[in-house]
Design a protein around this nucleic acid. Structure first.
Lengths: 204, 204
DNA sequence: AATTTGAAGTTAGCTTGCCTAACTTAGGTC
DNA sequence: GACCTAAGTTAGGCAAGCTAACTTCAAATT
């Protein structure tokens, strides 16, 4: 089945057959175009070729849809991060770099989903599945930093440097998405900044 | 005139007299409670004691309201930052710290407005007044970093370190607002992290 | 002082979106 | 082949954003 088939069934069968996934895919696109708070469920319905009441057979309400889209995003994100780390041998500084680069790449490729992953409203606070999925990625970061510093992953030193690194990369992602980087620091070389900060923060 | 008078006129005069400001104040509150994309203009009208058509005598549409609220926030923010820097003499390391702390404090006190200041949609991209107001604050940061490093503010070195510092503090603000800090790094001492990173990044 | 005028309100109403209730379709099971 | 149930549909309520046309009233003009 091709992707366009997933979105819209051309034949006029009463049952779509794959509506849940089709909606998620349509909404993923719409979140990129309009943002998590501005996309219209009704537009996703038009794309999928169903009436506006259909989604409620698969999702409780808008919040439930957001949750599903964010979760899928976090899983994609986690896989990218994991793949990136495995491109280099344990202990190599390149491994940290690759992790940071994967983070930046994802934020650039899917800014809407990226925002959403972090900015879900309080309705989703404490959701175990979301937290679990997020934790897997921070655990990965800590293990890589720990290897690099040759310290146990639970040590305060490792946790502190991991978090500091996270803050930095995360902050750059947001400033870049929001145009603040281009607005004033566009002529700085992105890689140069990253390298300089990485070194400064990982200096033993 | 007391603040509650600003919000709602008890007397039943036909003209409110101060509706624009009353709306901005009401919406500031609602943005904190519901977020920039979820607050209802109609609710602000109820608070201000006018009908739902009244705002359109003062603002073009929702985007125009958002712009005004964000601009007011950026001005408040700029003043706080400026005040903070002036609490210490030029060249003192405390001056950088104070700036970072003011940034964090604002994000903690007004997370809704803080988000909004950075996350305004593309409709406002390139707005000269907004950009100007933001630039004043980054200029301030650069001048303080320049003093500290004893280098010209336009030097690449200063700009690079300023931006790196900005990324870090900005990232921490967002991760903290979004619960990621508390979720996993809550036991780390915030001040300890800040101090460690500040030192690492400003090391000559 | 009376008149005029325009900014700042109001009422009424259109449009769109979310969501629910009640109904229909059709694929899989006995 | 009858029946059940998941997954669609239609119809409609409700709330919000925004506009057009009308009203009020304070201040400027005469």
């Amino acid at each position: 089945m091709t992707r366009s088939d997933t979105l819209k069934k051309n034949d006029k069968r009463y049952h779509h057959g794959d509506l849940r996934d089709a909606l998620l895919e349509a909404i993923r696109m719409l979140v990129e175009r309009d943002g998590a708070d501005n996309f219209k469920i009704s537009e996703a319905c038009r794309i999928a070729g169903v009436t506006t009441a259909a989604p409620y057979k698969h999702f409780r309400d808008r919040d439930d849809i957001l949750r599903a889209v964010a979760l899928a995003g976090m899983q994609r994100f986690g896989k990218r991060m994991s793949d990136a780390s495995q491109e280099h041998d344990p202990g190599m500084p390149k491994r940290i770099e690759a992790l940071g680069q994967a983070y930046l790449d994802f934020a650039e490729a899917e800014p809407g989903i990226f925002r959403m992953m972090f900015g879900l409203s309080e309705h989703h606070a404490g959701d175990p599945e979301l937290e679990e999925t997020g934790k897997a990625t921070t655990d990965l970061l800590e293990s890589v930093v720990a290897e690099h510093l040759n310290l146990p992953p639970e040590s305060t030193e490792v946790r502190l440097r991991s978090y500091a690194l996270w803050c930095f990369v995360h902050g750059h992602c947001f400033l870049r998405m929001d145009g603040k980087f281009a607005e004033k620091y566009g002529q700085l070389e992105e890689t140069e900044i990253l390298a300089a900060v990485g070194k400064a923060m990982m200096r033993v």
